[in-house]
Amino acid sequence: MNYKLSVNGTDHTVESTWEGESLLYVLRERLGLPGAKGACEQGECGSCSVLLDGDLVCSCLVLAAAAEGRDVRTVEAVAGPEGLSDVQQAFLDAGAVQCGFCTPGLIVAVHDLLERHPQPDDLTMREELAGNLCRCTGYGRIMEAVRMAADRRAASA
């Protein structure tokens, strides 16, 4: 069964061998978009986070063949022609990247968070990022990166 997927504004035809494939698998193995990471494949870790019709979801829990006609945005679309996004830059500046495995999912999640909460307090940050696990940083630097990105946005507004 072939189906179409719209990813980062581009239509792709997926020639699938098996219709049970998750969006995460199709992005990585069939469309050459390895930004979203696969770890648990059960919705627990958030390393596969993408936007589906604008909503933050785990791509491992999206049946790719049923996502025809929907708008998928991955971490690959975050950086613009001018380079890294403000959130990506803040992650680098704050030292929020260690092994980097959780980073793509967190970048997508933090962009989503700042859209809805431009100046999140610590509790909001913790609650909103509860679906993204990091085994390296202890989250301190990640929180610092969120504050940094939020402050820079406020300063340049």
Binding site: G43, D55, L56, V57, C58, L61, V62, E128, A130, G131
Partner: peptide, 9 residues
């Protein structure tokens, strides 16, 4: 329930 990702879906 779950996390923001799970609650959105």
């Amino acid at each position: 329930v779950g996390s923001p990702q799970i609650r959105n879906a």
